[in-house]
Design a protein around this nucleic acid. Structure first.
Lengths: 137, 137
DNA sequence: TGTTTTTACCTTGACTGTCAAGATATTTGA
DNA sequence: TCAAATATCTTGACAGTCAAGGTAAAAACA
């Protein structure tokens, strides 16, 4: 297998996913940064600011502003931490959960679309390959 | 194959690539937007502003500012279009080519890393699967 | 040909995302 | 107790982005 050709194809795949994601997010009236935040809180459940900032790869200063805006949009809320009065737990509101579920469904549909024409075995092979790749880097 | 599990894995793969890319780009002193611009000009060769803006998915207003900055960094230049005096061709400078090649090599190395432990057949299967997926969406 | 429409690019104003640096409040550890 | 560490917030400075409006040139057309 020609590594250049493979590299090119992986990049194209990445770009295509990226474009798809941007389109879906924009339609929902969010920015990609805001969507990413909702995705993480949706998957992780209630999470501290600091931990969330680390997962997003931004500083806490950046996150403060970002959470302010998402709170204004009523997609998530700050809940005072029970045992640490410096800290908050961030959690999704009802509305936030809706947005999260909606986005999740979009992804499920995309995956189904992608797998059109793949046999069970081919799907399993692809899944296994991606898993293995992720262990490699 | 469970579509939810597969979807989750594809998203993780995407996120991992995204994080990798951000890291590599940041190390080179560019923003992701600037890098993306260089990638496209590198692959396409001399290209008009309008076409470049379309490929990047931004407005020409955004691109004007962006190209201004990349020209200041001496990574690319505006060359007046021969037959259309409203237009410019954007092309990489020597320095821009270097950056482009460097980034390209990073990707080649990443791909090699990813494929560690894959047989020729497995690599070809993975390549074929990704190609097929891209036709599906 | 002369005029209108379209096209390509630039400018500006407003907003988001981002970081670095510094402030405040609280917790931890010596 | 009190200094050090931690969690969050604030602010100032930029980059990226779009929309809207401006200029110049090309294209269409009457």
């Amino acid at each position: 297998m020609d590594v250049k050709e493979l590299s090119k194809t992986i990049i194209e795949f990445y770009e295509k996913l990226s474009t798809w994601e941007e389109g879906v997010v924009k339609d929902s009236g969010l920015t990609t940064a805001q969507n990413h935040t909702i995705e993480i809180v949706g998957h992780e459940g209630a999470i501290k600011m600091k931990q969330l900032a680390d997962k997003l790869g931004v500083t806490t200063g950046t996150l403060t502003v970002s959470i302010d805006r998402l709170e204004e949009k009523e997609l998530l809320r700050r809940v005072p931490h029970k045992s640490d009065r410096r800290s908050y737990l961030i959690e999704l509101t009802e509305k936030g959960q809706e947005v999260f579920k909606m986005h999740h469904n979009h992804h499920i549909n995309l995956t189904r679309e992608m797998m059109a024409g793949f046999s069970e075995q081919e799907q399993a092979n692809f899944y296994g390959a991606v898993k293995k790749i992720m262990e490699n880097f």
